[in-house]
Structure formats: structure tokens, C-alpha cells
Amino acid sequence: MSSGDKAVARTDSGARWGDRGQVESDAGFEEFCQQNFVLVERFLLNQCPDHGLVEDAVQEAFVTARARWEQIRGYEKPLAWVYQIARHRLAVARRRGRPQAAPGPDEQPGGVAAPVRQFGAPGGGTGGPMTPATARELLQGWLRQLPPRQAEVFTLALDGWSDHEIARVLGIAYHTARTYRQEARRRLGDLARRDGVEPGSGWGRE
């Protein structure tokens, strides 16, 4: 599951961007944007609780991608490039923000006991059947209690990117991507147990 090859294959159309040279460029970008905007947003929301900042960063990243679409559409996975840009845009926005709002890189933001219930999420709250949205909410609450880099690595791994790809997107060493993924999985197990979810085993541990 941690193989990155599945990452793009599992998008709605399963299209591999760049393989479709015959597609008209603008339409291609629009489809790319529609399929991935929310995914990039989910990635950033796992580290930053400020929806406004995240939304702006993702929008800026896609505008940048639009400007460079002719170049990046030929990449094997243009989405990797967009992830990288979106991270930078968010980092810049957070540095500009209020100092007390931005925790240091090694500081885990405190007081995030329960994830905020997303308005309008089907079956939100406790008791209802678990949906992808509610599962993501719960996971988001846990991920924000992890060191930020570990949360990033884990989110990408869950998204299907390989350790090598994660290392390249985040600008870290391959060894780091691997060990952080395992460490994050271990910590998530502890947090899940604390919140009454059976940790299980296997995923991310090989």
C-alpha cells in the first residue's frame, strides 16, 4: 500500500498526467486541478488547523502550477511538484502570521484533544457509521499531535506515495522518510489506544 504507483492510479479517472499529450492543455489542467485540489488541501490540513491559510496556500500553488503547466504536465507525477509548492506557500504564510499562532518546528501544538467536527460532514460526530470523512477527521486530530514532519510523511504514505517519493517531495533523506513513517505509525497507535480505538498492526510496519 505504500507503493506510490497506486497513488495516481487511484484518482478518479486513473489518468496519468503527462501521458496524454493529445489532450488540450487548458482542459487538462482544469481536470488536474479538480481532481487534486481537495487532496492537497487534506494534506496541508493535517499539519495546519487554519483553513483560511491552507485554502490560500493551495490556491496559490495551483495558480503557480497553471502558470507552469506546459512544463510540469510532462512529469511522471505533476502532483508531487504541486505538493512541494503548496508546502512552501503555507510555510511562508505561517511565518508571516501571528507568532503565537505558529508553533516552532519541533513544538507540537497543544490542546488539540478532539478534532473539530466538520460542518456538514455526513454522519459526523460520534455514534454514526464511520465514513472516509469522519475517519479523516479523527486521524487529523491525532496527526496534529505528532511532530509536524512525521505527520507530513505519514499523510503522504497513507496517500500512497513511496518512501523515495516522500523524501523527494519533502526534501528529506530516504532514511528519514522511512523511519518517520514507522515512528508516526507507532505514535498513532498510542493515540488511537488512548481514544479507545484498537491500534491493530501491520500498516506501515515492514
Binding site: R10, T11, A135, L138, L139, G189, E198, G200
Partner: peptide
């Protein structure tokens, strides 16, 4: 529900 199943759900793209 185990964490395993929860992660599989959350990983749904």
C-alpha cells in the same frame, strides 16, 4: 473498528 480499518477509510482518495 481498528486503527487499520480507520486508516484504510481515511486513505480513500
Amino acid at each position: 473498528m481498528t486503527l487499520e480499518e480507520l486508516l484504510a477509510l481515511a486513505g480513500d482518495r
